[in-house]
C-alpha cells in the first residue's frame, strides 16, 4: 500500500480547497449522502437545464478522500448530460474498485483517485458523492421533451 498513491497532490489540494462547495438555492434537485461507518455527510444541490446538470454544489463533512472526490466530481459533471454522467460513473467505479486496468474513457483529473483501489476500506469514502449524485438525479423529474 503506497500512501502517496492515495494522498496525491490533487487529492490534498481539493481537500484543502474544495471546488463548488456550498448550496444552490433554489435547486432543481438535491440529495443527502451518509456513510454511517465514518460519519461522513454530504449534501448535494443541482441545477438542471433540460438533460444537463447546469450547476451543482456540495457541502458536508468528510475525510480527505470523500471531500476531494466530491470536489473532483462536481468539476467533472458540470455541464454534462445524464447519459454522459452515467458513463462517467461507470468508469469511476471501475477505477475505484480496480476492476479494469486502464479506464476506457479519459477521466482527466478524476484519475487522481486511482490510488483508492489499493485501500479497500476507503472505496466507500470516494464513492459516497457519486451515489448521492445518482440519488439526486433519480429523484429529479425527467426533462420534458419538446420534440
Amino acid at each position: 500500500m503506497e500512501l502517496k498513491e492515495l494522498y496525491r497532490d490533487v487529492i490534498l489540494d481539493h481537500n484543502r480547497s474544495p471546488r463548488n462547495f456550498g448550496r444552490l438555492e433554489p435547486a432543481d434537485a438535491q440529495a443527502a449522502g451518509h456513510n454511517p461507518l465514518c460519519g461522513d455527510k454530504l449534501n448535494l444541490t443541482l441545477r438542471l437545464q433540460g438533460d444537463r446538470v447546469q450547476d451543482l454544489r456540495f457541502e458536508g463533512q468528510g475525510c480527505a478522500i470523500s471531500t476531494a472526490s466530491a470536489s473532483l466530481m462536481t468539476e467533472a459533471v458540470k455541464g454534462r448530460s445524464r447519459e454522459q454522467i452515467a458513463r462517467l460513473y461507470k468508469e469511476v467505479h471501475a477505477l475505484l474498485t480496480a476492476s479494469t486496468e486502464v479506464p476506457s474513457a479519459d477521466l482527466g483529473k478524476l484519475m487522481a483517485l486511482a490510488g483508492v483501489a489499493e485501500f479497500p476500506a476507503r472505496v466507500k469514502c470516494a464513492s459516497l458523492c457519486w451515489h448521492t449524485l445518482n440519488a439526486a438525479l433519480e429523484r429529479a423529474p425527467a426533462p420534458v421533451s419538446t420534440e
Partner: peptide, 23 residues
C-alpha cells in the same frame, strides 16, 4: 486540525499502527 480521523487511521495503518476512528 485539518485532518479527518479516517485519514489519520489510514496513514497510521500503513505504519502498522491500529487505532479506532469514527464515533
Amino acid at each position: 486540525e485539518g485532518v479527518h480521523p479516517h485519514d489519520i487511521g489510514t496513514i497510521l495503518d500503513t505504519e502498522g499502527i491500529a487505532i479506532r476512528t469514527g464515533h
